[in-house]
């Protein structure tokens, strides 16, 4: 079975072998046999040839259904119906297919009480720190600088409720380090700001909420899910501290984190 399973949130992938085989190889450790959202990848030569990468398409929502459309691609994700379908021109690349799959995953995760977050998840003293921010904020740099620490992912993470608090799970949608570490309890949310000196800055709950919503891909584009998204982050912020982390391009920012969090 071609199943992508991240922390029990599963996508059952269907499509031509030449599209699925590379994904199965890349995601070998994420396979399982549990049932989940059905994701159909359908080659369609009647579509115009892609004019660019699929990730340039922005999600559009109508009554809870996500449409992801651009020349060469027609994606529809209906989590309530348990199905996602991508019709793609045969010239679609592996990266294009992954973009659709991770968009479907973001919706499936949200429906199951979890959240996909733009952030680098770094494990320090057996707890996960999410260093978050949009493209260019320094997530990959901060992860690369954190030598010796497991990196759950340097771009996209799964956050879900745990028996005590919240936990962060690795995803295959980015770079990892020490892949044997796949999850850790969430300790803090740190918004990355590149700066001349390392420092932690206190921010209001509203500022943290706004920044975290902005870093919740796919879901933050849906007006109808906005109230639920706010609620979920407010639930997390009630239990987990959030700060801005000003950091320079050196691993010394961990000293600031240690001084504060112990």
């Amino acid at each position: 079975m071609n199943t992508l399973d991240i922390g029990g949130i599963a996508l059952n992938l269907q499509g031509p072998e030449h599209w699925l085989a590379p994904l199965n190889t890349a995601w070998a450790e994420w396979q399982s046999s549990i049932a989940g959202l059905q994701v159909q990848l359908l080659p369609d030569a009647t579509l115009p040839a892609p004019g660019g990468a699929y990730f340039e398409a922005r999600p559009r929502f109508v009554e809870g259904v996500c449409y992801l459309e651009i020349a060469g691609f027609a994606g529809k994700i209906a989590p309530k119906d348990g199905i996602a379908t991508l019709r793609a021109h045969p010239a679609a690349t592996g990266g294009d297919l992954v973009y659709f799959i991770r968009t479907a995953f973001a919706l499936a995760a949200f429906e199951q009480g979890a959240l996909l977050v733009h952030g680098a998840g770094i494990v320090h003293h057996e707890e996960a720190f999410i260093l978050y921010g949009l493209s260019g904020s320094g997530k990959s740099t901060a992860a690369a600088l954190s030598t010796g620490k497991p990196v759950l992912n340097d771009d996209l993470l799964l956050v879900r409720p745990a028996a005590r608090g919240w936990e962060v799970l690795a995803t295959p949608f980015g770079r990892r380090r020490s892949p044997q570490v796949t999850a850790a309890p969430l300790r803090a949310l740190l918004r990355l700001i590149q700066a001349p000196n390392d420092a932690l800055e206190t921010i209001s709950s509203a500022q943290a909420l706004a920044e975290l919503v902005a870093n919740s891909p796919v879901i933050n584009a849906d007006v109808d899910r906005a109230a639920q998204l706010f609620e979920r982050w407010q639930g997390i912020l009630a239990a987990i501290p959030a700060y801005r982390l000003h950091f320079r391009k050196a691993n010394t920012f961990w000293e600031v984190i240690d001084a504060h969090f112990g």
Binding site: S204, S205, A206, A210, V213, A214, N220, V223, A226
Partner: peptide, 24 residues
């Protein structure tokens, strides 16, 4: 239409999902 708001502490978070922009 479609702008989402949420009170948090003494502040109001305003988000435009269509544009991906926000302010507090």
């Amino acid at each position: 239409a479609g702008v989402a708001t949420r009170e948090s502490g003494n502040e109001l978070v305003v988000v435009s999902p269509a544009q991906g922009k926000y302010l507090v």
